[in-house]
Structures are given as structure tokens and as C-alpha cells.
Design a protein around this nucleic acid. Structure first.
Ligand SMILES: [Zn+2]
Ligand SMILES: [Zn+2]
Ligand SMILES: [Zn+2]
Ligand SMILES: [Zn+2]
Lengths: 152, 152
DNA sequence: ATAGTAATTGTTACTTAATATTAATTATAA
DNA sequence: TTATAATTAATATTAAGTAACAATTACTAT
């Protein structure tokens, strides 16, 4: 954790930004909730718990900065709010998501899976891929189990 | 075109909705701009040209209805507005998009390409896929040509 | 046809995610 | 220290989208 903060600090410095207390507090919230998909408002409320003096605009600015530096990825699941997701350290591409249309759960797929598809797209559409967004909508394993229970 | 409207009319009827003049005008705009990715506001302005009496809320309601019936798909490219995209007739899944980070162009991939990936996801993550969203961000073939021109 | 019921619409008001503004604060450089 | 630049907090503003509601339109039953 601490080393991860240190590495993020270096990433900021090498782009000539500082890791201010407000930025560090924001990054810590993201690290402590890595499995979630927090909105800017969510992050703001969590940061406020430990740093009540922080302003909402600062959180927005920090999230924008972290997105620019590819430390976090901004994603939208179609509910009108942007969500922020820490990128795996050293990951070339953004990970994928499984959104359950029954319970709303969002699970992650860290494996790439798209290597072959991307090769085809680059060749056939002559498109130089820099990043991707892949989200599957469907029924998660938990909700499938629930349905089985009822029918048994 | 006319037959396409007729089929959409039937789809509405079989869900016990009517194809009112306002709804028809909205669908026509979508059909006439099938290659674009219009926002609700875009659709509203285009519909107003031929049906100036239409209200913005009606356009929003119609787009929501068409989304429910899977006649259009709602998609968000990360710029804060939802866009509406006619689904290919009979297509099981939503098509994919190539978003150019240079010029902003959005091109489409109608081929599925994800069959193998989806088989893996369904099996390994035990997730019942109902739909997907796949967007590649990168450099389109036009912008790649532009860069070559300069360096030659 | 007539009256009654349900669906649909247009206008307006409202909500809220996100951005812009600006003065104050903090850090860095001379 | 003094000056300069970066960053912040608070506030105002923008704009996408939704809600409320009265008015209109379309069916249904008599
Ligand atoms: Zn994620
Ligand atoms: Zn579920
Ligand atoms: Zn499209
Ligand atoms: Zn381009």
C-alpha cells in the first residue's frame, strides 16, 4: 500500500505534479476501495471522513488528473454518473466488467481476452488501438443460483 | 425505409404502444441519420425541423421507449451525453465502435468478433451474457494517413 | 354519436453531475 | 524576503436528464 502510494507519487512528479495532502487523501480512498466503482461524489464523501476540509472541485480535479496519467480509468455504466477505477499496475489495457442486470453487481475480469480480436481490428479496420472498454450485461453467478433455488 | 418503419410500428404494437406522429418523426430522424451517433438534443433539433411542435420531453420519452424495446441502443462515449444508435434489424448483440482520439470520429464494426470471448466468459465466470458494449479508443485510418503525409 | 377511460403530449419546473470562476492559500524560485 | 507559480475551497453556473401536471388525443362501452 505505502509503496503503491510512493509509486503514484513518482508518476505525478515525473509529470511535474505534486502529491498534495488532498491528492494523497483521494488516492488513499481509491486504494482502500479498489474493488468498488466509486463516483466522484462517492469519493468526495469518503475523503471527507478523514479530511473534512477538502472541496468537491478538488476531488474532481484530482480524479481528472489521475485519469490523464492513466492511474485511474473513468468509466460509465449507463446510469448517468462517471465512475473511477484504479488501473492494475503495469496493465496495458483497462480491465473488463460484468454488470448484473438483476442485482446491479459489477464484477471484474482482469484477463485481457481481447488479444485476438484486437489483432483483427487493427488489421481489417486499420485502426491503431490505444485502449478499450468492454462491458458485458447479463446475469451474475449469484443471481443464477437464486433462480435455481426457487425452481428446485 | 417505409417497410422498416412498418416493422418498427409492429414492434410497438406488439408491446401495446402506438406509433404516434411524434414517435414516427423521431424514428424517421434516427433512420435518416443511421450512420451518426446522435444525442437526445441532436435528435430533438432534427425532429423540430419537420415537426416544430414536438416537445423535448417527448423525444426523451420516445428514445427511452425505443431503448426498452431494443430498437435502439443507448451508448455513452465518455463525453457526458448519452447517444442513441439504431440496432441492426435482427442483430442479437449491439455492434462495436472505434472512437478516434485524434479527430473524434466514431466508426462502427457490425461483425460480432466476440463469440469466442463470450464463450470463455460464460464458462469461466459463470455469467449469462445478455448484451455487451465494446469500444476501442485509438487512431482511425484517416488520421494515420495524415501523420504519414507529414513525415513523408 | 356520446360519454367515459386510458394513453400521450407539451410546457414548465426541477434535480443533479460536472465545470467555471475567483479569491485565498501554499509551495517554489530568485 | 519578495516574487512567481501551483493548488485549493467556496461559490456560481451550465447543461443533461427527469418529474409534475394540465391539456390533448385516442380508444371503449354504451
Ligand atoms: Zn473495474
Ligand atoms: Zn446479480
Ligand atoms: Zn454505432
Ligand atoms: Zn481520426
Amino acid at each position: 500500500m505505502e509503496t503503491r502510494i510512493e509509486r503514484i507519487k513518482k508518476q505525478l512528479h515525473s509529470a511535474s505534479y505534486k502529491l498534495t495532502p488532498q491528492r494523497e487523501a483521494t488516492v488513499r480512498v481509491l486504494l482502500e476501495n479498489e474493488e468498488d466503482h466509486l463516483s466522484a461524489e462517492d469519493v468526495y464523501l469518503l475523503v471527507k471522513e478523514k479530511s473534512p476540509e477538502i472541496g468537491l472541485a478538488t476531488v474532481y480535479r484530482t480524479l481528472e488528473l489521475l485519469t490523464e496519467l492513466k492511474i485511474v480509468d473513468k468509466i460509465n455504466f449507463g446510469d448517468g454518473v462517471s465512475r473511477y477505477d484504479l488501473r492494475q499496475e503495469g496493465a496495458a489495457h483497462f480491465h473488463h466488467h460484468l454488470v448484473c442486470i438483476e442485482c446491479g453487481a459489477v464484477d471484474e475480469i482482469q484477463e485481457d481476452l481481447l488479444e485476438d480480436v484486437e489483432a483483427v481490428v487493427e488489421r481489417r479496420w486499420n485502426f491503431k488501438i490505444k485502449d478499450h472498454r468492454l462491458t458485458f450485461h447479463g446475469i451474475c453467478y449469484r443471481c443464477q443460483a437464486k433462480v435455481e433455488e426457487k425452481t428446485v
